[in-house]
């Protein structure tokens, strides 16, 4: 009897779980929050257990950062010297020294007590476009986020059962997919049901639809020329900058996956040896397999 009551209760709660879904499609014409579509899943060279960064892609992405994004977005947790470290862009130390000197960094105080500007050195961090958040807000009414870990700071709802399958397929590139989609998702006019305040741009993939970031003209007018001759397009730019930002967030990715493989092989071998040792030891115990 108790069992039946409980089954009913459980069934009820299961229904309760499945039934609600925020924002049904039936509310046409009503003011409801814009639901951004999930970003399309792209193929990344660094995905999967044997993933590696594509150095040419990282260099292209860095070029976009340098010529377009760095005007508003900092990369303050990276140093120029990171560009020549293994598992990254593949620049030489000499190239990094040259590249660093193209940047101006603030240093000081000098012997007169003043801060001064000088050419960048490999050990310097990437300079931020604004000295602090307040300066950014005063200029743009919003604070453009720093890019150092942004590829790990962005994701999207995967829902059941995908979030379980992601654990088996090792899908960790939600951030990169979102960033690539976001960058190519600027549209001049929002859909009719979406009303945005002035100064807010519509982006197809932004949750809620509105972003304070203006449409990046250099991206959409294809103003960045790639050094390796790769044809320019919004999709290409988006992919390359997303890959670069993934490296920026996880510069140790290649080492992590490489060591991971060695560790997994070692553990599987050791587990096998321990299993057979266990069986041998326990065979002495009468009546136990």
């Amino acid at each position: 009897m108790l069992r039946h009551i409980l089954t009913a209760v459980l069934a009820g709660s299961l229904i309760g779980l499945i039934a609600p879904h925020p924002v049904a499609a039936q509310d046409e014409g009503k003011e409801h929050p814009y639901e951004a579509p999930p970003p399309p899943r792209l193929t990344w060279s660094f995905a999967g257990p044997f993933g590696k960064f594509d150095q040419a892609q990282l260099q292209r992405g860095f070029k976009i950062y340098k010529e377009v994004c760095s005007l508003c977005h900092g990369l303050s947790m990276l140093s120029f010297r990171n560009l020549s470290q293994p598992g990254g862009l593949g620049y030489t130390d000499a190239q990094v020294k040259q590249l660093a000197s193209e940047f101006t960094v603030r240093d000081g105080p000098n012997d007169q007590g003043e801060m001064f500007d000088r050419k960048g050195r490999p050990a310097d961090r990437f300079p931020s476009p604004f000295p602090n958040d307040n300066a950014a807000r005063a200029r743009y009414n919003a604070v453009p986020p720093d890019f150092s870990v942004i590829a790990k700071a962005r994701t999207y709802e995967r829902g059941f059962p995908w979030f379980i399958l992601d654990g088996l397929t090792q899908y960790q590139e939600q951030g990169a997919d979102y960033i690539a989609a976001y960058l190519s998702g600027f549209e001049d006019k929002p859909p009719p049901s979406v009303h945005l305040p002035s100064g807010v741009q519509f982006n197809k993939y932004m949750p809620g639809g509105g972003t304070s970031m203006p449409k990046p003209v250099q991206i959409y007018d294809k103003l960045v020329q790639y050094d390796d001759g790769t044809p320019a397009s919004v999709e290409q730019y988006s992919k390359d900058i997303a890959a670069f930002l993934m490296w920026a967030a996880e510069p140790q990715l290649e080492a992590r996956k490489r060591i991971g493989f060695q560790v997994m092989v070692f553990l599987i071998v050791l587990a096998g040896l321990l299993y057979f040792t266990k069986r041998k030891v326990w065979s002495k115990v009468h009546g136990h397999a």
Binding site: K152, A153, T155, G167, Q170, Q172, G175, F261, V263
Partner: peptide, 17 residues
């Protein structure tokens, strides 16, 4: 090791970055 090496941020939350 599966989590540490291949899914290090899977159990965490992106907002903490």
């Amino acid at each position: 090791a599966w989590f540490v090496f291949y899914l290090p941020n899977y159990l965490g939350h992106a907002d903490n970055y």
